[in-house]
């Protein structure tokens, strides 16, 4: 039995009420609660008030914006609804794959996209009960003053473990944030920082209301791969999202642009430099090997999640190579 700390709750029914409740000090947003509540049960935070978004209909839309040529997904949409949505499936299969690989069907019925984007960073030394942590005296992210992953490190390197985030970054998604300072738009890739404790650019009282994903301009191919200890339930040990713009539909297509984003390294999702891939034949074995090498070279793994860092790093090469092969074969 894991008890929650004592707090008050608010259940606003529209966005205005929600924002006003969030502007009060000590307020914390709860969406599906599937990340927040385990963390509170582990006493990683003790907010005064939990403000629930579950009754705010305005945040639960999936709509096409014809002018922007983009799909707009409300922050309150559940991952189950994203995974089952025809329009998302038709245009962004890699997002459907990522959403449907999160945790379990029960959790996906609760978990929201906004929560997945704002998911707290994770580490084997911090996502533990308070009692467990007390045995090692905590760490920078909890009640201690050392890091057990990088022992001399002065900042926290807990891992960004969201399945949807690398995919959304690879698709060039834009985030809509609304708060006391007003509304702002920013590229999702710029939302994250390398500090595992304050890992987003979220301002005080601000919430994510929407994600906008642009429709690919040309011929494209996108993929998400995730490696886990067990087939279901588990957070990723590594995650790779890829999105290629190609010269043609045919088997001899050439890569015009490649975005590869790696998750679960540290707090910031890592977007790789991919200039070397431009101009290469998409389906070539040489290209596949090069993708694997890039993932390996730039994927500096740490012992912040289960399994040895070196093992995970080697698997980045394997998963990177396999991912592009699978994509090419499926065309």
């Amino acid at each position: 039995m894991l008890r929650l700390p004592i707090f008050q709750t608010k259940t606003p029914t529209n966005l205005e009420e929600l924002l006003s409740a969030m502007s009060e000090s000590g307020a914390r947003l709860i969406a599906g609660g599937t990340d927040l509540l385990p963390n509170l049960k582990h006493r990683l935070d003790t907010p005064e008030t939990l403000v629930s978004i579950d009754r705010v209909e305005e945040l639960r839309h999936i709509t096409w914006d014809e002018d922007a040529r983009a799909l707009r997904i409300g922050a309150g949409v559940t991952l189950a609804d994203i995974a089952a949505d025809n329009e998302v499936g038709e245009h962004f299969p890699s997002l459907v794959k990522a959403a449907s690989l999160v945790a379990s069907p029960l959790i996906r019925n609760m978990a929201t996209l906004g929560g997945n984007i704002n998911l707290d960073t994770r580490c084997r030394y911090v996502n533990q009960s308070e009692f467990w942590r007390s045995a090692i005296g905590g760490c920078l992210k909890s009640e201690g003053d050392v890091c057990h992953v990088v022992p001399k490190g002065r900042s926290c390197a807990a891992a960004m473990s969201s399945d949807c985030v690398p995919v959304l970054i690879s698709l060039g998604a834009t985030l809509i944030q609304v708060g006391p300072q007003g509304r702002r738009e920013l590229a999702l890739v710029d939302y994250y920082s390398s500090d595992g404790i304050e890992h987003t650019q979220k301002l005080v009282g601000e919430i994510t209301t929407e994600v906008q994903i642009p429709l690919p301009a040309g011929e494209s191919a996108a993929h998400y791969s995730k490696w886990t200890v067990r087939k279901s339930i588990d957070f990723p040990l590594l995650s790779i999202a890829m999105n290629f713009t190609l010269s043609s539909q045919g088997a001899d297509a050439v890569i015009e642009e490649a975005i590869i984003c790696l998750g679960v390294l540290a707090a910031k999702p890592k977007v790789l430099r991919t200039d070397k891939l431009v101009g290469l034949r998409f389906g070539d074995e040489v290209t596949a090997s090069l993708v694997g090498e890039l993932c390996f070279k730039h994927g500096k793994t740490l012992e912040n999640v289960p399994y040895e860092a070196d093992y995970r790093r080697s698997m980045l090469r394997v998963f990177g190579r396999r991912a592009i092969r699978q994509l090419a074969d499926s065309r």
Partner: peptide, 26 residues
């Protein structure tokens, strides 16, 4: 009590959810 096991599964408005991670207020 933290989402891993499903022993607390109930249906809320017809959907199977984890009652250990659902606030009473929700």
């Amino acid at each position: 009590d933290k989402g891993d096991c499903g022993a607390c599964t109930v249906q809320v408005d017809g959907k199977a959810k984890l009652s250990c991670l659902t606030l009473a207020a929700q």
